[in-house]
Design a protein around this nucleic acid. Structure first.
Length: 880
RNA sequence: GGUUUCGUAGCUCAGCUGGGAGAGCGCCACCUCGACAAGGUGGAAGUCGGGGGUUCGAGCCCCUCCGAGACCACCA
């Protein structure tokens, strides 16, 4: 037992480190919200991923941030609930499953509604398992005892509750309007599900003959096939060119229908000919005009985008085929005047990519204005939702302030079926959570709700709402922070806010942390079609989850996109390996040192005091920045502290007492080494959970798991500014000596004498006290430290604050070169002195700048003047 | 048309409420020193997109121009 040396493998192997660790955490139930009333609750709900497939890097990024926040909060003593779950993702999932069926030569209609839905559930179960497995690989501290799915019974109940309540309030209505129609998936889409892309199209100019007249009227369109559904021509009421034609009839070419010329304010006199064809069934503006003028609505297409019976001889043609045919026919008839190239925005379905058809259809809508007003009002007050970064609040508000009604019915099978029934005879509409009693006389609406209708309720439906007395709802709602990408602010964030306000009277979360998109290394979006996607699981396999996580967390600033680089993940691996090896060193020197043996009350060395001070600074930095969601800054502070301070300096210096015979000194050094490493592991844990748990378990520690260890706090007792200054001086001197040696190319292994002329006794005592470090780092054959040192002729010189350093290097110095080097240095100090003097003689500066800044400049002046003087003296000596 | 982000070392990016520019990778030289060569030590490298302004002082604030991107928007 006594001589048991703790060991780590010589190389960091993430696969080994991570294996079994997640299970250990789950078995320990460390991620489960305790409900402990002595603790403050802290809650986050995961943005539920679609059950359509595997998680991508964007998910990994998004969830890692949440994990980092919740792990820190848990360690800080909060009762943390991070609630997992998934989204049924109606249109996306249904499409995927339908594609699968298609491979078997089947359609959903072959199976029928019930069978099809069963098939989708099977799919869901399979993919939910994939997703959980991936969450595990990422190390996410989720409370699976509270996992939810948007189509769970209880969550479905919440959906119905909301639908019925909104209906009763008149905030949901059904009606026939122009909506965005996707002819491929054959469903209505909301405005934000339509992606506008710039397309090189054509502008077709046509000339319609006025009835009983020689006159013609010129109109233009980008969609000539819709002329089959034209029921009017509109001109501006004040347009002098057309005054005499208002009320006249036009004979629609090909169709032969007579349509009227109407006057409407909507028409822009400046644009085109100032006359517009009106197709109320295929254009939202035309629909409005049609309403104002009581125009007939002629739908000319089927739901799949082919032309219907109203299209006459074009019936059965695809809409784009029809376009070509019509253009040809119009040309033949001489109606078509010209075709111009025209760059314009064309809407495409977010899911299928199909060109969206504005289409007359009966759908359910949410009347958004009252809901949006409330959400906007919230942001005007004190208790608003905090967007991080702030600028996204404006994006959100712009949308809310220009809100349009929301089409919520979808012509799909997979989703929450609309709780509306129509009487078979009277056509009466019944809306309610329960089906009507004489069900045989009613038929339920075939449609389901937009997926986002249920997602909008996620922060409270998952907590037990509409049961407002549910424990979870009372304790964990509203949640503390929501983390998501800027691409779904409208889809989700906005809708959660207004639904939450409407139904719970509270905002759903305090903060919204918005991040960007993951891009490929060339800056393009990662996408299946480009084949440039990177599977997070591949990254984990190669470099480990910790490396991936740290890369994601520190790779960009909040709200900014992030490019994926394998090289950078690799360099994080290097960092992890460094941590691994530093820990390995510490463990090799621990003997049977235990956690209780950590004792910082012994005599602390200069490096001890310094590293503890730096630890304090790092604790403050990391805590504050993580709280601000500045993971990049926090990560950098940790990186520098671990690599530069702890590894490069402290460990190297600790080797002296560790290799000595002084048992007391050894124990103190072990204490500091162990304590600082323990604190490092804790701070790093939310960033790199696996490696830190592994090392922490090997280190002298107390407690079962680092996941529930206390978060480090600033310790005033070990904050020593004086020691920090001394250490800085020591480091300066060591670096200068290394620098000179590098210049004359003498390896550190070669012993040479070193003479240090201290400026005063204080410096000399400090250096004398710490000469063991100078000896270890500079390897001199002889080390002289005194206030009176005569510089040998054949020495190279370095001037540092408070000291002059001479290295007698007989035969190694080229005097000409040395003089040139010093002259260069002299010039440097000269200009520094000049600059700082100029600044200090500037009254504006001295009077306006903060005292701290001015004082710093004064110190610099003294220092630089001294250095300048010393270099000058040395030069004169050499030149003699 | 409106809103918005970005332009800093060869590459990718930091730079906190203005106080004299940093990291990673890459590059050059040297080093097997008992944690780590995936490492150590030293080094080269930037007119902070251009111009103007505010200020004692600007990478940071304001204006303007150039360049790249994102989002929103019913102009037929």
């Amino acid at each position: 037992m006594t001589n048991k040396k703790r060991q780590l493998a010589p190389k960091y192997n993430p696969t080994e480190v991570e294996a079994g660790r997640y299970k250990f955490w789950l078995d320990g139930k460390y991620f489960e919200a305790t409900g402990d009333k002595n603790k403050e609750p802290f809650s986050i709900v995961i943005p539920p991923p679609n059950v359509t497939g595997r998680l991508h890097l964007g998910h990994a990024w998004d969830t890692t941030m949440q994990d980092t926040i919740s792990r820190m909060k848990r360690m800080q003593g909060y009762d943390v609930l991070w609630l997992p779950g998934m989204d049924h993702a109606g249109i996306a999932t249904q499409s995927v499953v339908e594609n699968k069926l298609r491979e078997q030569g089947k359609t959903r209609y072959d199976l029928g509604r019930d069978k099809f839905i069963d098939t989708v559930w099977d799919w869901k179960e399979e993919y939910a398992n994939h997703i959980r497995e991936q969450w595990g690989k990422l190390g996410l501290g989720l409370d699976y005892s509270k996992e939810r799915f948007t189509m769970d019974e209880k969550l479905s109940d919440a959906v119905q509750e909301v639908f019925v309540k909104l209906y009763e309030k008149g905030l949901i209505y059904r009606g026939e309007y122009i909506i965005n129609w996707d002819p491929v998936t054959k469903t209505a889409l909301s405005d934000i599900e339509v992606i506008h892309e710039e397309i090189n199209g054509h502008f077709y100019h046509m000339r319609y003959p006025i009835k009983d007249s020689e006159e013609v009227i010129e109109i233009a369109t980008t969609r000539p096939e819709t002329m089959l559904g034209d029921t009017a021509i509109a001109v501006h009421p004040e347009d002098e060119r057309y005054q005499h034609l208002i009320g006249e009839k036009v004979v629609l070419p090909i169709v032969g229908r007579e349509i009227e010329i109407v006057a409407d304010d909507y028409v822009d006199m400046e644009f085109g000919s100032g006359a517009v064809k009106i197709t109320p069934a295929h254009d939202p503006n035309d629909f409005e005009i049609g309403n104002r003028h009581n125009l007939e609505r002629v739908l000319v297409m089927h739901e799949d985008g082919t032309m219907n019976g109203n299209a006459g001889k074009y019936e059965g043609m695809d809409r784009f085929e029809c376009r070509k045919a019509i253009v040809k026919d119009l040309q033949t008839l001489g109606v078509l005047i010209k075709i111009e190239d025209h760059l314009h925005q064309v809407g495409h379905s977010e899911r299928s990519g199909a060109v969206v058809e504005p289409y007359l259809s009966t759908q359910w809508f949410v009347n958004m204005q009252p809901l949006a007003d409330r959400a906007v009002e919230l942001q005007k007050g004190e208790d608003k939702v905090n967007f991080v970064p702030e600028r996204f609040e404006q994006t959100y508000l712009n949308w809310m302030e220009n809100i349009h009604d929301w089409v919520i019915s979808r012509q799909l099978w997979w989703g929450h079926r609309i709780p509306a029934w129509y009487h078979k005879e009277t056509n009466e509409v019944y809306v309610g959570k329960e089906a009507p009693e004489d069900i045989e006389n009613w038929r339920q609406d075939e449609d389901v709700l937009d997926t986002w209708f249920s997602s909008a309720l996620w922060p409270f439906s998952t907590m037990g709402w509409p049961d407002e007395e549910s424990e979870d709802f009372k304790r964990y709602f509203p949640t503390d922070v929501l983390v998501t990408g800027y691409d779904i602010i409208f889809f989700w964030v906005a809708r959660m806010i207004f639904q939450s306000l409407e139904f719970t009277e509270e905002k759903p979360f305090e903060d919204v942390l918005i991040h960007g998109l993951i891009r490929a290394s060339d800056g393009r979006k990662m996408s299946k079609s480009l084949g440039n996607g990177v599977d997070p699981m591949d990254v984990i396999e190669k470099y480990g989850a910790d490396s991936l996580r740290y890369f994601l967390l520190t790779g960009s600033t909040p709200g900014q996109d992030l490019r994926f680089y394998w090289e950078r993940v690799e360099s994080v691996w290097n960092f992890a390996n460094k941590i691994w090896n530093a820990s390995r060193f510490v463990l090799m020197n621990m003997e049977d040192f235990k956690y209780e043996d950590i004792d910082l009350s012994g005599e602390l060395t200069l490096p001890d005091k310094w590293i503890l001070t730096r630890l304090n600074e790092t604790i403050q930095n990391v805590t504050q920045n993580t709280d601000k969601y500045e993971f990049g800054e926090a990560g950098r502070a940790l990186y520098n502290f671990i690599w530069d301070d702890y590894c490069d300096w402290y460990i190297e210096m600790a080797k002296i007492p560790l290799n000595s015979d002084n048992e007391a000194a050894k124990q103190t050094t072990r204490s500091v080494l162990a304590h600082v490493l323990d604190q490092i592991m804790r701070m790093l844990h939310p960033y790199m959970p696996f490696i830190t748990e592994e090392i922490w378990q090997q280190l002298p520690h107390e407690g079962e798991s680092i996941t529930v260890a206390a978060w480090p706090t600033y310790n005033e007792e070990y904050h020593d500014e004086v020691a920090s200054k001394e250490m800085k001086q020591l480091v300066d001197i060591i670096k200068s000596i290394r620098n000179i040696r590098a210049e004359v190319d003498t390896p550190m292994s070669r012993e040479i004498p070193i003479m240090i002329k201290a400026k005063n006794d204080t410096v000399q005592i400090t250096l004398d006290k710490n000469r063991s470090y100078l000896e270890r780092f500079c390897n001199p054959s002889e080390l002289t430290i005194a206030t009176e040192v005569r510089a040998p002729e054949d020495a190279m010189t370095a001037i540092v604050t408070g000291a002059e350093i001479f290295l007698p290097l007989e035969g190694l110095i080229d005097f000409e070169k040395e003089i040139a080097r010093l002259e260069k240095e002299l010039k440097k100090w000269e200009s520094e002195v000049e600059l700082v003097t100029k600044k200090l003689s500037n009254e504006g500066f001295v009077n306006n700048a903060p005292e701290k800044v001015v004082e710093a400049e004064r110190q610099k002046q003294i220092e630089y003047t001294d250095k300048h003087e010393k270099v000058k003296q040395r030069l004169e000596e050499l030149k003699k």
